[in-house]
Simulated scan of single mutants.
Amino acid sequence: MGRITSSITGVTGDRSVLTGVVLFALIAFSPAVLLWLVLRLPRAVQVLWERWRPAPQARATRAPLESLVRNLRRLHAERRGPPATTRVRRTALLAAYDDVLLDVCDAVGIPDPPLRAAVVAGGTAGALDPDRDLARLRTEAAVEEAGIALDRPAAA
């Protein structure tokens, strides 16, 4: 009589205990595992979608250098002219000037202009930040060293 048989389950000896433990673990942990899977499913689908979809075609969206320089000079003249009447207008003018100045830096090939770090850092004052003013001045100097005059050439 080496085998002990259970009349109810028909399973021998320790195997019924192991089956019970496995069933208990499945019942106890399946809700947590299912919840974890449901929460992770959207991210997994997104990762798979990004991996299998074709890469977007690179398009040259930057304006020609002449247009960028024309906009830079116009905004530079507005910035040097009479001050804007409201803080919103001053902020908008400086933000637009910074964007065009950085576009010119990219077009001319100025690596890592000082203004880029100030724009990325942001800050509470935004475009009106005094530290950003200094970075803007240093970037203007780099653009002029690259051969682009910020002031319009005088008519001869």
Rank of each mutant, 00 (worst) to 15 (best):
R73N: 02
L115M: 02
L72W: 02
L134D: 15
V108K: 15
L128F: 00
P83G: 01
A92V: 04
D129T: 01
C105Y: 08
V108I: 05
V104K: 12
D106I: 10
D103I: 02
C105L: 11
D98K: 02
R74A: 08
A77K: 10
L128S: 11
L75D: 05
V100I: 11
E66T: 14
R116F: 05
A107S: 06
G123S: 10
R89F: 04
D106S: 15
L68E: 04
T86D: 03
R80N: 15
L75R: 06
A84I: 06
A96G: 01
P83V: 02
D129M: 07
D106E: 15
V120N: 13
D112A: 14
L72H: 07
P111E: 14
P82R: 15
R87W: 08
R136C: 01
L134E: 15
H76C: 05
D112K: 11
R74I: 06
R132F: 04
D112E: 15
P83M: 02
L75C: 01
P113E: 09
R87M: 13
R74H: 12
R136N: 02
T86R: 13
P83E: 00
R132A: 08
A84K: 11
G109M: 14
R87A: 11
T86W: 12
N71T: 05
V120G: 04
V104G: 07
L68V: 09
P114E: 04
A107Y: 01
V119D: 09
A127R: 02
H76A: 05
V104H: 09
G109Y: 12
R89E: 13
V120C: 10
A135F: 10
A84G: 13
Y97C: 03
R80F: 12
D133N: 10
D99N: 00
D99F: 00
G123Q: 01
L128H: 07
L134W: 11
L101Y: 03
C105S: 12
D103R: 13
